[in-house]
Amino acid sequence: MIETQHLGRVFDGTVAVEDVSFSIKDGEAFAFLGPNGAGKTTTVRMLCCLIGATTGTGFIDGLDIREKSNHIKIRSMIGLLPENPGMYESLSAHRNLDFYARLYGVPESEREARISEMLKRLGIYERRNDAVGKFSKGMKQKIAIARALMHEPSYIFLDEPTAALDPEAALTVRNFLMELKKEGRTIFLNTHNLDEAQRVCDRIGVLKTRLLATGTPDELSSRFFGKSTVVGLKETNPDYLLALRQLPGVLDAKIGDKCILISVADPASQNPSIISTLVAKGAQIEYVQEVKHGLEDIYLKLMGDSK
């Protein structure tokens, strides 16, 4: 489990991260969303024991990140993909991975097989002996991911893994993340890419120095926008609103462009009575749809509220 308790970091009087508390269960994929400078990278660096916390603490598999004696053990359990791949460009892909496999203490008997397997999995085995400097950004990113996974870590931290990649390379990386998720690894993903977060991760955290919200996309949508049903009508009538507002479980109703937007506590249970009420009032219904707010709406609302 990854956990933080009131985690905070100040750089020369500037607050980068403040009072951040969350927990991620083993096997869960969690995305941190936030604008540039929100403190996402700082949080990851603190959790990876690369920099210290000014306030609060964090735990990786129960090990306190404040305890220096835990640092090497924590770092051996995690795989980090930083924002920049940071490969040794004059060395081959194989040599890069071999170096990190040795540093992570991968046994000699398994090292070669693991490197080959990883390179094959990412589709770069044929170019294993080429200098990394000759590779495209996407290929470098793949090798960087392989590097983070050489020691088969339980916890994987990925900082903007698809930033600056073309759509095809981004898709390959995203698919690989999905595979890792299926393998049951705990994934912590920093990203700007809302679609990526929604596809890959179970839960989302929105950070802007402080943690503004955490939850599944559906939870966040309900929390910030409530639940609503939109009913498309041939013609609208103000009488419909009066009838709908009297129904139990209906919080509000508004007339839109040839539709009525109805805020409800539970669309699944309320929709039948809404439809029968409208039909009884003579409404001609064209469609009924539950309104779902996307991650973008949630993100923009949270960012707007935090200003």
């Binding site: 990876c48 690369l50 090497i72 053990k73 770092r75 051996s76 995690i78 980090l80 930083p82 920049n84 791949p85 940071g86 490969m87 040794y88 460009e89 990190y100 540093l103 992570y104 203490g105 960087a144 590097r147 983070a148």
Partner: peptide, 14 residues
């Protein structure tokens, strides 16, 4: 310049 220090620092070395 190559930004290869961060992954190196993330390894279990002192």
């Amino acid at each position: 310049l190559n930004k290869s220090l961060e992954p190196l620092l993330a390894t279990p070395t002192s």
